[in-house]
Design a protein around this nucleic acid. Structure first.
Lengths: 339, 339
DNA sequence: CGATAATTTGAAAGCGTTGTCAACCCAGCT
DNA sequence: AGCTGGGTTGACAACGCTTTCAAATTATCG
């Protein structure tokens, strides 16, 4: 028993192939009676239109590509440690599916691979998840495939809208919170590399410090990626700096750092207060639970997908910044959250 | 400038369309000279064969579907909290890509949707990630699409090979470790539901206990899914049971439980020792760091993908069980790992 | 040099669908 | 009865590629 085609449906319903296609595509020239018969036949044959064939004629694949940075092993570690990506992807998947799209994943390496991928699969749109080197966007210059950038600000070679959490405000919130608690010497722990997201967070952070006339530290860097180990290694330089509080640019790094501080018998928050970014699910269950700048990951994913779908439909859509708020927990206040 | 097709390549190379196709498909009837000319032309035009068209004729899509359980919101929470899925998917993605396949993701709900999805996209194979209700496999009875089950044992309606960590041994290792430390009253904290993976773990666990003549507790259940909150809620029943050690069937649950114990001023491991399953990246950075049964998630993902590819090629492939080992850390021994 | 073998070609069918077009059928209306 | 027009039909080209086949071309060899 092989797959039913549009022709089988037509036969079964006693109508022409064209009529079936009309029903499928909602071309209105079809009477209620015919429509009913066709739908019935489809039902009985459990017919499903073949996306492959449709892609070929309509030159749309109903496929959205999500590109995650797997450029080198270390970056791939980030993704493995961080449930951030699970959450993001599952939100995008749902939103896409609700709109008749499937999502394909890729962790690509050289720029040319991106272009090739889009061509081969006839991808309708692309979601860049994270920070990518400029040559990658450049490689797609002659592609005109719609794309949306998640977690990174504008590309200079292509006009893609971006979606981010309000990073600047996040940095400011964390700083303000710590100052309010009486800390006078704050550190800023970033992954490092020329990361526009962290630049924004730093911007917000330093603005607040300057307003308050507090001494502005120079940011410390943890090897260009957000990892547990990166955070862990920040402990010693941090202790030397003599600060009493530190803003980390990710929960993951904060976890690593906290563990390192603990190993060195430093009490949190009494000796050093720590904040993170993201509010991963585990953050409230950690000990100490982590004060962090929360963003709604799923919302961001959904929104990114919606923006992309708009672009695919040819509608315009502008960059967006999603709201954030600070979740205060033990790592700064010492006060446990009730579960 | 539109996409080059096989015909453009042929023209440019000064050969026939057929010849190009031969080169593409490695049909031997082509001379070195021609092959070179064709490849050159492809290069210059940066030609990429159109998978859509190929799918249509070859009736293969080079697409592998990964199905994750998103059946209800609670299960989707599991996936969001747990970096396990990121790691698994990224391993599968890599393995698939290296073999010329792309992966498509879906979290589907009703059984019929699975069948429809396979049909519509002409998926070449399916990876079931996690436990699915039997009707789902049943729905695919007339599909004969190759599939591999990850993290769940045989389906009774379909002949799909499965891949799992050695769950039974894992349960045994955890139990033996705790007994060795002198604990005499162990608890077993599972997600619950009729989960064959947990059944195996329980099996290994209880076998060891019986061998030692230790009292066998009845397993406690945390609402059918592995979540932080589920673990957290297990604290009170656990304390009532009077045990001095507990084997949790996932790190995530263990995290929740540990936090709850901490909130109740219970010392770990002095009052209660805790073990988990998985060895997520954060587990060694937690405080206390978690003793857990480690599996190599990426290996499992790669292997699953390889098995599926074999099946797709028509080669046989049998179910497999991956090795596990116990990683002992503070949550049972009190001894910190050095980082 | 003629014969035989190896390449290469052109043409055409097929994959499952869309989209267009002229032709047709059967109301309903004048 | 003659029109008008919505619904419907068949036919066919396209989409980009694979495959098959017979025919044409080129290479190889005694």
């Amino acid at each position: 028993m092989k797959r039913p085609t549009i022709r089988d449906v037509a036969e079964k319903a006693g109508v022409s192939k064209a009529a079936v296609s009309y029903v499928l595509n909602d071309v209105k020239k079809v009477s209620e009676e015919t429509r009913r018969r066709v739908l019935e036949a489809m039902e009985e044959l459990s017919y499903e239109p073949d996306f492959t064939a449709i892609s070929l004629t309509k030159r749309r694949s109903q496929l959205i590509g999500i590109i995650m940075p797997l450029i080198d092993e270390s970056i791939s570690a980030v993704m493995q440690e961080n449930s951030y990506y699970s959450e993001m992807i599952s939100a995008v998947e749902k939103e896409a599916r609700d709109n008749g799209f499937d999502i394909v994943l890729a962790g690509l390496s050289e720029p040319s691979a991106y272009k090739a991928w889009v061509q081969k699969r006839r991808l309708d749109g692309l979601l860049f998840l994270g920070l990518f080197p400029e040559p990658i966007y450049k490689a797609m210059e002659d592609m005109d495939v719609p794309a949306v950038l998640i977690d990174t600000y504008e590309s200079h070679t292509r006009d893609y809208p971006s979606i981010n959490m309000d990073d600047r405000r996040g940095g400011a919130l964390a700083a303000a919170h710590l100052l309010e608690l009486g800390h006078e010497w704050l550190a800023f722990a970033a992954a490092g590399g020329s990361n526009p997201v962290e630049a924004e967070r730093w911007h917000g952070f330093s603005e607040v410090l300057q307003e308050q006339g507090t001494v502005l530290p120079s940011p410390m860097h943890a090897g260009s990626t957000h990892t547990l180990e990166g955070g862990y290694r920040l402990a010693d330089p941090l202790l030397q700096s003599g600060c009493t509080a530190v803003v980390c640019t990710s929960d993951i790094m904060a976890f690593g750092l906290i563990r390192a501080l603990h190993d060195r018998r430093i009490r949190i928050p009494d000796d050093i207060a720590v904040t993170g970014f993201d509010d991963l699910a585990v953050s409230r269950y950690m000990y100490p639970s982590l004060t962090t700048v929360r963003q709604n990951i799923a919302d961001k994913g959904r929104r990114a997908c919606t923006m992309l779908l708009q672009r695919i439909r040819g509608e315009p859509s502008a960059s967006e910044v999603m709201p954030v708020h600070l979740v205060t927990r033990e790592s700064t206040t010492g006060i446990p959250v009730e579960q």
